[in-house]
Design a protein around this nucleic acid. Structure first.
Lengths: 186, 186
DNA sequence: GTCTATACGGGGATAGAC
DNA sequence: GTCTATCCCCGTATAGAC
């Protein structure tokens, strides 16, 4: 694997662990086993490297979400599969984590990558909710887009609660609580 | 207002805006209009000042949550009041925000302040859900603690989505979606 | 492509004067 | 209590050699 590749992957790791503000070029170089000159040869600076790293992470996340949602079965089964898919709960969401970072929110090009990722996820879930309504598995009284936002928010908020508690339990409770609400009428 | 007080309030502001990692002693001193010597006279360092600031913020947050939950009415009305209370959505949660910060999660004494705040909030909401069940307004099939975790997670996750989108809309959708789920049977 | 040198301000704190 | 001086390393690059 060449240096450019190692730099991107190291940046992905560090952005996940420490966010943008908490990640220094030096730390990325160390983890990538690349020198100062190498990094600044391949990227204009921290910002540009972060952009590449976030794009890569966002793509991976979408692929993983799509895979869990491709579970065969009813709409509620797909949503259940998404909610209960394997997660590194205490490490948090690789994309959502960045929303807390002031320098990400300020940099329009970086923030938009988060916006696009969540927009895609919400839209995908909304379609599944709507299809569940057509199939009669989901209450027609629910708004698909609102419900999709709720589902994504429970996951993101679950991470916050789990990291605060240093325990996966509140994440699991939040997901169980949501599933119970969605299934209530079935 | 004395310098000690100004330092704590400045630290509260900056922790909200930039997190722990993103906040330097210098920045706090500047905002507080206090010198280096003043800060290190009143506090042993950044860590100790942050602890005081977080304690203060956590107390304020609990007081505000308790106030919204003291709304007269049924359990579902209280929950609705909590969910729709006035919020600075794009600035995020002053406590939940810190869960993304690696240095907060690593420092047990700081992280525990977040844990305690959310534990209190979830327990308070769980009691309200349970009382709603006794009064027949909430489905007896729901687990009060799970449901409480879901409610808190929707709020925390709503902040993440709103900040990512640079719009309050997804927050409002997530809350509406949750309210629809809770009210579905009423 | 990668290395080393150099730069300048900031992060986070200690020491001692006033 | 607050000020100023001082410290040392890090953050974030740029420049030019190899």
């Amino acid at each position: 694997m060449d240096a450019r590749e190692r730099l991107i992957e190291s940046a992905q790791d560090l952005l996940w662990e420490r966010g943008y503000t908490g990640t220094s070029p030096r730390a990325i170089q160390h983890r990538a086993d690349a020198g100062q000159g190498s990094m600044y040869h391949h990227f204009a600076g921290k910002h540009e490297l972060a952009r590449e790293a976030i794009a890569r992470t966002a793509d991976q996340l979408k692929a993983e979400a799509a895979a869990s949602l491709a579970t065969p079965g009813t709409a509620t089964e797909k949503i259940g599969a998404y909610l209960t898919r394997q997660r590194d709960v205490l490490r948090g969401c690789r994309v959502g984590r960045l929303a807390a970072d002031p320098d990400i929110i300020t940099a329009a090009d970086l923030r938009e990558q988060l916006a696009a990722t969540f927009a895609w996820l919400r839209e995908t879930l909304a379609r599944i909710v709507a299809s569940g309504q057509r199939a009669g598995q989901v209450s027609p009284r629910l708004d698909p887009h609102d419900t999709a936002a709720t589902i994504v928010a429970v996951v993101q908020g679950g991470y916050v609660l789990a990291r605060s508690a240093d325990s996966t339990e509140p994440f699991e409770q939040a997901v169980s609580g949501l599933l119970a609400l969605i299934m209530k009428e079935s």
